[in-house]
Design a protein around this nucleic acid. Sequence first.
DNA 1: ACTGCCATGTAATTTGTTACATGATTAC
DNA 2: GTAATCATGTAACAAATTACATGGCAGT
Lengths: 173, 173
Amino acid sequence: MLEFAILGFLLERDMTGYDMKQMMVMRTSNFIDASFGSIYPMLKRLEKIGLITFVEIVEGNRFKKMYTITAMGREHFMEWLQTPCTFSPFDFEYLGKLFFYKHLKKNDVILNIELFRGTVQEAIEKLSEIESITCEGKESFECASLQFGKAYYEMVLNWHEKLIADLTKTNPS
Amino acid sequence: MLEFAILGFLLERDMTGYDMKQMMVMRTSNFIDASFGSIYPMLKRLEKIGLITFVEIVEGNRFKKMYTITAMGREHFMEWLQTPCTFSPFDFEYLGKLFFYKHLKKNDVILNIELFRGTVQEAIEKLSEIESITCEGKESFECASLQFGKAYYEMVLNWHEKLIADLTKTNPS
DNA sequence: ACTGCCATGTAATTTGTTACATGATTAC
DNA sequence: GTAATCATGTAACAAATTACATGGCAGT
């Protein structure tokens, strides 16, 4: 995820590692907010495999490494962005992609979100089945945590339904 | 988290590592579902530090290690359970605790959830501030992912408010 | 015979974190 | 002068995953 956040930021403008951290604090803190201890090694890795490059610059007396995305990096990022993602409560890849969806054609965005919603629906069905087996009428904290799961998944499903409606309305295709 | 899930399960009944995995699949999959590759090493570790013990038994011709929680383990678990937790979108410790709240006095449960809700409220305010700075009126995917965050946090806040209401109603103190 | 389930375990890898270390600039 | 911010980086650790390896039991 960090890998693609970095590439996505660089699609917008050239940046230093420090800039990227600020970006995360200010704009993506609800789904990605990595520490410097992972940002800098990742930059090194991405440079090594040719997805980004950098120039060392000096401003005032502070030295910076200004990073730029390469053509290969762009390709790698777009391939990730176009791949529809699956719902899991444990990662926010779907929000990571959403953040960068302006780089995708609207129809592809809508299609990807529809597919994503399908995976949310599946997750809801799986939880519902478990609930019907283990919480027949009973009220307990065990069931409450399951019911929270369902409420959460349903919120994700409905929010994305509304998003698609908005996207379709704004500029009908 | 896995550590406390294991201890919590053992509070209910003696179990093997395999049983714990099944427990997770069937009852806690929306907030914890570890693989065997982390369950077995964790059991070894917990046994080593004296929080659990085991006896080897043979059933049919299958050997099992049946684990039991120790007094120390119980203490360690209860200390964790009683400590109020903080909201973070990246972990579901709050659901892990919720699942085991039957082991806590109701008033402590309510107090802990109230404190937890305070931390959710703080997270909402932080996101709202960011939103007001970066998304003034503008509509974009970047803002959508932020707005999703807010919607999610608010759902968590309201769901727990309702939970407290239910707890208070059922048996007024 | 073969598949699925029961049952345990290790090794390599992934993906991060926190703490530390360095050093300049800016504002009070 | 001292604290906050700008800027980069490493080392030790943490918590998990996947893939592999082993072997018995139960049903078809």
